[in-house]
Every structure is written in structure tokens, then in C-alpha cells.
Write a protein that binds this DNA or RNA. Structure first.
Lengths: 240, 240
DNA sequence: CCGATGCTTCGGCGGAGGACGAAGCAATCG
DNA sequence: CGATTGCTTCGTCCTCCGCCGAAGCATCGG
């Protein structure tokens, strides 16, 4: 009994509503100021300051002072990954957030998930890539096929550079709104960067939602042309 | 703001020391009774009962009544995965459990991690498999090579059967004591089952530690002949 | 049957920690 | 140089929730 690192402390840290809201806001991948995070969490500035100090001390967020602002961001992909996992567990119980705002549909359609895309469009892309043989899923793992490599290369994504990092190239990430996987990992990030750089999608200021531009709609439709074809089986590659 | 499933509730649930201890105990993979979990968490039976009810309601654990006992176990690999991730975050801050008991070295040497092996030996095996070309790591993903497939087949592990499931065959799982990856996934589980079935390791009753038997030591040395790291010098294998 | 064991519900106690207002520093602006 | 903004520290209040003891149901053994 009582072996291993004390997960209770970290979990309790994430378990406070105000702090959880802050972390959730940081899941969009951008760095936010203390004031923004205070508003995001719905608490006063002093309260937020205390929370952020604790999150920083635990190594969950990193701070960068810029003038009279202090920018906070998640300290790494592992933090984002745990938060995602917690979202999955929370979604499993059916307990969804109790305030479905008017922004909800946009959020469901396309949003950022730490540093890659999530939502309907992301799931569509993922399934289209599988249907087109650009991605392959075997034994619960996703990998890029030769066809996929040349496809992304032709589209202007430097796959070879991504493969030099230790980060997994492809990663099936369970989408909490669709309950189906979308593409994460280095390639997932590259695709989001690509889509933003070409103005296919535009990050919104106040939320994780991604606005899809008209040219972006055409481009995404082109990429996902074969998504409607029935898939042999959905792959949910979560778990150890 | 405030979008997505409410992770705060789940995290707060895990964030209580007593509940975290219970979940940690269940990480060994076995189902435990309410009384055992109460002792594990260091709380009274009524307190434990309340905690377990909440964990069950949130879907983190499953209950099975058997006579006058109620057996609890983690509800799935995703829960175990999140717990592991939290361990990683906790270990990152350097805040380790404050009571390093006498059992600690054994625990560091070999233990279960939900349903596969962890600790020094698990890391050694993982690295040896990589060195021998039985596993391949590319772009952060681990996969079984043809050589590995025939190796495990010759050793009596039915790899083909594992590939029919949706669970990832190979998964690099960060070892919190070694800070280096070991093998999880379906193959990781199969290897642990194999080692237990052949009495190479023996699960201990009171902890996640695995006792390595003398024949097990020989077998593991054979499997890990080409690991980069020097062999663990000590043998703590008592007879069965 | 009766006693023992395992687990749960109930009620009351107590402490940890999250909330805010006021005040204090730092940085930017007119 | 004041004035304003952004953030932090301090002190205090108060709610929440984890804890246990006692009692109440079930199950198993004789």
C-alpha cells in the first residue's frame, strides 16, 4: 500500500473547479495571462493568482513574464494528455458540462485539442485518411502509410522532419464530443499548423472553437472526400 | 470558457488521499474487497464504503458482489492509463511518496503496472527487445518486428491472437521509478501473464511488487541478454 | 436457529482550503 | 511625474467534505 508517487496531490490540484477551468482554457494551446485565466475560471484576481502559483509550483504550468503581464501555458504534452484522459473519463459517466452555451455547436464542429484539431471535422478527416489508405490502423495503433506520406508531402507537410522527433507521429485521440478517435501526435499538430497557416481555420479569441473559412471548407472537403464511405471498424486506440 | 466535460469532478474524486490509495492498490490489476481497500487506504470501513460508492457512481471502478464480499476493480484500461499519467506528473515534480518502506527496493525492481510489468526488469526487457530488433521504435511509436513476432511465438506467446483485439499491441509506458519506458499494451500484458504462468515472477499478496524466482531470474536474463544497462546485482527471490 | 463477519446508512464532529477585500509593487501611458 | 492597469501578498471568513462511532441489513457458519 501507499506506493509510488503521490497522485492524490496532483489530482487534487486538477480537481478544483477554478483550477480545472484554467487548465481547460490552456488546453487551447495558447498562453494566457493571469487576468484572462481569472475571468475564465470565474474567480477574482487574488484567488486566481493563488491557484496559478500552486499550479506553477507543481510544474503543471509554466510562466513567462512579459511587461506587466504574466503568461501561463501548460508545461508539456504529458499534462495535456492527462487532462484529455480525464475528459474521457468524465465523458464516460455521461456528466457533461451543465451549461451548453450558444457557442457549443461551433465547438462541436471544430476546435483545438491542445495542439491538434478535434471535433466533427477532425473525426471526418481521420476516418477519410483511413478510408483512403493514407493512415493504417492495426492492433489499435495508427501509422502513416507510404501513400499517406507522399500525400502529405505533396500537400506541403514535412513528414520526414516530424519523424526525427521522439513524439509519436500518429496518435488516435478520443474525441469527447464525437466519441470517436481523431488524429493527434506530431502529424496532428502539423495538420493544424498547416490549416491555420493557409487560413483554412481561424482560432477564435475567446474559446477553443476553430472557425472554418470558406476556402478552408473547400480544402477540408477535398481532404475528407471519402469520409462517407463506411469503415470496416472504428478503432479506439486508448489505454496502455 | 467552461467547455467540454467537467474534468474537475473526476479529478477531485481521484484527488482525495484515501481514494487515491484505493485506486493505486487496484492498479495491481486484482480485484479487492471493500475491507481490503479500507485497510489499504488507512480508513475505517464506513469511510471506505462511502468512497467506493462514489468511485463506482463515477464509473471509475466496477463492483461484483460475491457472497458477503464485494469485489472492486478498475473499470478499464483508460482509468489505469489516467492514473499512470498522474503518477508521471507527480514524479516529475520530484514529490515522491514520503514513506520509503522496506518494500521499496523490491518494488523498484519489478512490479505490476495495471496488467503489465514495470520496474527495473521491465525497462531492461524493453531495451533489450529494442537492441535485439524484436521491437522497433520509430517516430515515438513502438512496433513488433518480424523477428520479434517469431521470437515471442517460439516462446509460446500467441501474438496473432493479440492482434485481433482493438487494444494496441505495443505501447511505451513511462516507468515512474526508472523514468524510462517499458512495454505496455496487449503484448505487455501477455508477457506478464506468461511470466506468472511459468512462475518466473510471483505477485505478492500485499503490494504491487513482483518477486522474481530463481528460474525466473535465469529466464529474464536470457530474454534481456542484450540490454544496455548492467544487470541488477541483487537477487531477492525467495522460494515459493 | 444464533452468533460472527462484511458492508452499508446515519448523524455529528472537526479541519483543510477556497473565497474575497484591502493593501502593496511593478510596469505602462498620457 | 501622477494615474492607471496587472498582479501579488495578507488576513479573515466560511463552506465543504472527509472522518468516525453506533446502528442496521445481508450472508455464512455452526
Amino acid at each position: 500500500m501507499k506506493e509510488g508517487p503521490s497522485i492524490a496531490a496532483v489530482a487534487a490540484l486538477i480537481g478544483d473547479p477554478a483550477r480545472a477551468n484554467m487548465l481547460g482554457a490552456l488546453m487551447a494551446g495558447r498562453a494566457l495571462t493571469a487576468g484572462e485565466l481569472a475571468r475564465e475560471a470565474g474567480v477574482s484576481a487574488p484567488t486566481a493568482s493563488g491557484h496559478l502559483a500552486r499550479l506553477g509550483q507543481a510544474g503543471l504550468v509554466l510562466v513567462e513574464a512579459q511587461g506587466r503581464h504574466r503568461y501561463f501555458r501548460l508545461s508539456g504534452p504529458d499534462v495535456a494528455h492527462v487532462l484529455e484522459g480525464l475528459m474521457g473519463l468524465a465523458a464516460r459517466t455521461g456528466r457533461l458540462r451543465t451549461r451548453p452555451g450558444p457557442r457549443d455547436p461551433a465547438l462541436r464542429r471544430a476546435r483545438t485539442c491542445w495542439d491538434h484539431m478535434a471535433g466533427e471535422w477532425a473525426v471526418r478527416l481521420y476516418e477519410a485518411f483511413l478510408a483512403d489508405g493514407r493512415l493504417a490502423a492495426a492492433a489499435g495503433q495508427v501509422s502513416l502509410t507510404a501513400a499517406g506520406r507522399s500525400f502529405f508531402r505533396a500537400e506541403g507537410i514535412d513528414v520526414a522532419a516530424l519523424e526525427t522527433t521522439r513524439r509519436p507521429l500518429c496518435r488516435a485521440c478520443l474525441d469527447w464530443s464525437e466519441r470517436r478517435p481523431h488524429l493527434g501526435g506530431g502529424l496532428g499538430r502539423a495538420i493544424l499548423d498547416h490549416a491555420v497557416a493557409r487560413h483554412w481555420v481561424r482560432p477564435t479569441a475567446e474559446s477553443r472553437a476553430l472557425a472554418v473559412t470558406p476556402p478552408g471548407l473547400a480544402a477540408l472537403r477535398r481532404w475528407a472526400a471519402n469520409a462517407d464511405k463506411p469503415l470496416p471498424a472504428t478503432i479506439a486506440a486508448t489505454g496502455p
